[in-house]
Amino acid sequence: MGNVVGIFVKSIFIDNMIFAYFLGMCSYLAISKSVKISAGLGVAVVFMLAITVPVNYLLYKYVLSNGALAWVSESLRGIDLSFLAFIVFIAVIASIVQVVEMAVERFAPVLYSSLGIFLPLIAVNCAILGGSLFMQERGYQTLGEAAAFGLGSGIGWLLAIVGIAAIREKLSYSNVPAPLQGLGIAFIITGLMGIAFMCFMGVKL
């Protein structure tokens, strides 16, 4: 249990999706001009990561990894489908996005009106696919660990985008040199925020 909490905290602060791995930078830069909208996108990312990482974990463990099909029949023990991981992960993500979008529209129209426009964007957000790929790469042992990692990474992403959106809102009152405006200064601020987040690296978990 302590391990699960450790993974959760680590994926928020230390292995932050944006500051440590630069995942989801495209939408992070494009949709970080107002706090309200970026919080909506951030919540959508948390939601999708918390669903897709455990689902992909189960698929990887019981279908794709080396010898995983042994539970179907002994004769399938020698099969290694892990090279199909990319295409399976992205297909799962794209279809879950579609299903979640329809479900949210049907059962939670209020949530849909705030999340709706972001859900389709998320299928091609690197942070979502990155979550599943890191889950595979780091070989989490249990479903709980994978779920904690997914949820934690999402929350880390949410923190980062809300943080930069707040800074960029204030930034519109500052006198930034013309060529540096917009993209350039956003990169430099993200870098500085990343350096700030690095102080969590010393935390032993």
Partner: peptide
């Protein structure tokens, strides 16, 4: 990692 962002900026 953060210096990559600053360099790109």
């Amino acid at each position: 990692p953060p210096m990559a962002l600053i360099l790109l900026g």
